[in-house]
Design a protein around this nucleic acid. Structure first.
Length: 600
RNA sequence: GCCCCCGUAGCUCAAUGGACAGAGCAACUGCCUUCUAAGCAGGAGGUUGUGGGUUCGAAUCCCGCCGGGGGCGCCA
């Protein structure tokens, strides 16, 4: 936002160093960490170190850096827009003409509104693949992580300027799915609970029952063993029939799959998520087999089927690596059926060829790290240049205090249960604290806040960290939480509502309170934060920013009167600042897939 | 055996190689007749697992070790 001033200063520094034969290194600028006044800084440590290395100087580097900073400072003189310059501890600090820049920041935010912070168009298409539970059972809190991380990242990428496609790739086939289908058909056919979520939960229960039934038990009698094996045979026979396209099995499968998808769509709509493209695992099964042939013909894959083995790719060998890193991947079973990796290769080809994706992001848990490393390397060997821009956003598991969640064992925390509990808790607080919310709005706002708490608790942990799910922590409303940020938005709105209208313009020439400067400072950093979050594929960066901004706003709110100010000039400036803060909080929350209510 | 990730305050987590390692929770002290107290202000809490190295400068980069987690040709 202050490129012009920065460049003017840089030019002066360069000129000075050139004149005095100082080997200036690249100048890196960063915001000054201390609050109270507003500026940017750069340091001369690298330059001093380069000088010393060249055999000149002889003074300790920090001392020399300070010396250069002081000399540069004395040479800079007046620069338009810069109030003063200081040389401290080897740093050169530039402080802006506060009033002018305050106005500039606020004006820009209020002119751009919801677009403030949007990055320049990148001319690059990115596909984010996320929100992909296995079908045929209910959506649990672990699925919420891929869903929220993916959606937040998609929003961030889109806002940063990428042409963004949201994709989901549900696992709709596999032995687990068939197990449920088999048990449903054998024991529960014709039954069907009412309610989208009830049905999913019921299937989950059937899954746990069936798994228990099919697992070998200790001390089982010969009869039990025989019964179990008979069941297993039936199940596998059903898988074979599915594979052969048997109409009865396929119809049953499609019908029950639709139950799960209905539940998934309901949850996605609850979270305001619109997936653009659905890929189903079952649909890439056939194309993936053709790809194996192609890889064989190209000499990338090796066929061990004549020896009774599978089709493999010796990735390390192909790359000329001596250490085991990518290892050997199996891409076709010896019986000719495809694998997870095979399907991902087929899917990648569809993404590149059909959707013209330049950059592909997979939001999938960390246990599949090797899988994706292999997949990306194979794509590279296969000759796709996009392979270099494939990124596996590997996230840690959400576990329970008693251990990992397991759908097969029925040990899960259901998303719907958490969401319901969240709304219930918010309503309890609302009835106590928010008497002025109309009855009809309560439920809606409770959902916004409850889901905001849940979303923030997940997005405020860095991608690769595990989360141990604790209901009270996830639904906390105090401190570093979603509702804390939403509350800052509500308070800003409250002032604006009382004020009636936001002035068209205002000037900030009166002395600004440090709280105001800190707030303006943070507001001005929003565009850079969007860029950083997108570059690093980390919603956490935005989550941390949103909290910092809310924190500064809350402090401002307490310390700085707005409507109670007598001076109309100051009042106007502060009103515009509050409006700008409200806007940026809303923009940040939107990128986190969290609603910004006007009252709570 | 090999590969990857992690180790920061009592707990949960932050910190583009830069200034004094920051928040929240928990505990403690104040602040509601005021624009919403779902809030604010304050003090307290640290040998960044450990030993070396690179660097003017390391929580951050490199090597070793300790501890935890994940993965390693026909599961997804």
């Amino acid at each position: 936002m202050f490129q012009k001033e920065q460049q003017a200063i840089e030019a002066k520094i360069r000129a000075y160093c050139a004149q005095n034969d100082i080997p200036l290194s690249t100048l890196k600028w960063s915001p000054i960490p201390f609050s109270g006044e507003w500026g940017i800084s750069t340091s001369f440590f690298q330059t001093a170190a380069d000088e010393a290395r060249a055999g000149r100087g002889g003074k300790p580097v920090p001392q020399r850096a300070q010396e250069i900073a002081e000399q540069v400072k004395s040479q800079i003189g007046n620069v338009e827009g810069i109030s003063h310059v200081e040389a401290v501890k080897g740093y050169l600090n530039l402080y802006f003409l506060t009033s002018e820049y305050a106005r500039r920041v606020v004006d820009e935010i209020l002119a751009s509104r919801a677009d403030f912070g949007r990055g320049p168009v990148k001319n690059e298409r990115v596909m984010v693949e996320y929100a992909q539970p296995n079908t045929h059972h209910s959506f649990h809190i672990g699925h919420a992580r891929t869903t929220l991380l993916g959606e937040s990242l998609a929003r961030i990428m889109e806002f940063a300027g990428f042409d963004t496609i949201r994709a989901s790739y549900p696992g709709d086939i596999g032995l687990g799915v068939i197990t449920i289908l088999w048990a449903y058909d054998k024991f529960y056919k014709g039954q069907e609970p009412q309610g989208v979520h009830e049905r999913g939960q019921w299937l989950l229960k059937i899954y746990a029952e069936a798994t228990a039934m099919l697992e070998p038990k200790e001390n089982e009698t010969p009869e039990e063993k025989a019964r179990r094996e008979a069941c297993d045979t039936e199940r596998r026979e059903m898988y074979r029939k599915w594979d052969a396209g048997d109409k009865y099995v396929r119809d049953l499968w499609l019908e029950t799959r639709e139950w799960s998808l209905e539940e998934l769509r309901d949850i996605l709509s609850m979270l305001d998520i619109k997936i653009d493209v659905w890929f189903y695992e079952s649909e890439v099964d056939e194309p993936s087999k053709a790809i194996v042939e192609e890889l064989l013909q190209r000499g990338i894959a090796e066929d061990e089927r004549p020896q009774g083995g599978p089709v493999i790719i010796k990735i390390d060998e192909k790359l000329g690596l001596t250490k085991e890193k990518y290892r050997t991947a199996v891409i076709l079973r010896s019986d000719g059926t495809s694998l997870y990796l095979t399907k991902d290769l087929a899917l990648a080809k569809v993404k590149f060829k059909q959707y013209h994706v330049d950059r592909s992001i997979y939001v999938v848990d960390f246990r599949q790290n090797l899988h994706f490393q292999q997949a990306f390397k194979i794509l590279e060997l296969w000759g796709f240049p996009q392979a270099a821009k494939c990124y596996h956003l590997s996230y840690g598991y959400i576990t329970l205090p008693e251990g990992a969640m397991s759908a097969r064992r029925g040990r899960v925390v259901l998303f719907k249960d958490v969401a319901d509990e969240a709304v219930k808790r918010v309503l309890a607080v609302e009835s106590e604290k928010s008497g002025d919310i109309p009855e009809g709005e309560r439920e809606k706002i409770a959902a916004q806040i409850g889901l905001g708490a849940l979303a923030y608790s997940i997005l405020s942990v860095d991608n690769n960290k595990d989360i141990v799910f604790d209901m009270d922590a996830a639904l906390s409303f105090d401190g570093r939480t979603g509702p804390y940020i939403q509350n800052a938005h509500v308070r800003a709105n409250s002032i604006l509502k009382k004020a009636g209208a936001v002035p068209e313009k205002a000037d900030f020439s009166d002395t600004l309170d440090p709280h105001e400067i800190q707030l303006i400072d943070l507001l001005s950093r929003f565009p850079g934060t969007v860029e950083q979050a997108a570059n690093e594929y980390r919603p956490l960066v935005m989550a941390a920013y949103a909290h910092d901004l809310a924190n500064v706003f809350h402090s401002f709110y307490h310390a700085v009167p707005v409507l109670q100010t007598d001076d109309p000039k100051i009042r106007d400036a502060r009103l515009r600042l509050v409006a700008a803060a409200k806007q940026v909080i809303a923009n940040a929350l939107r990128l986190l897939d969290i609603q910004a209510p006007d009252v709570m």
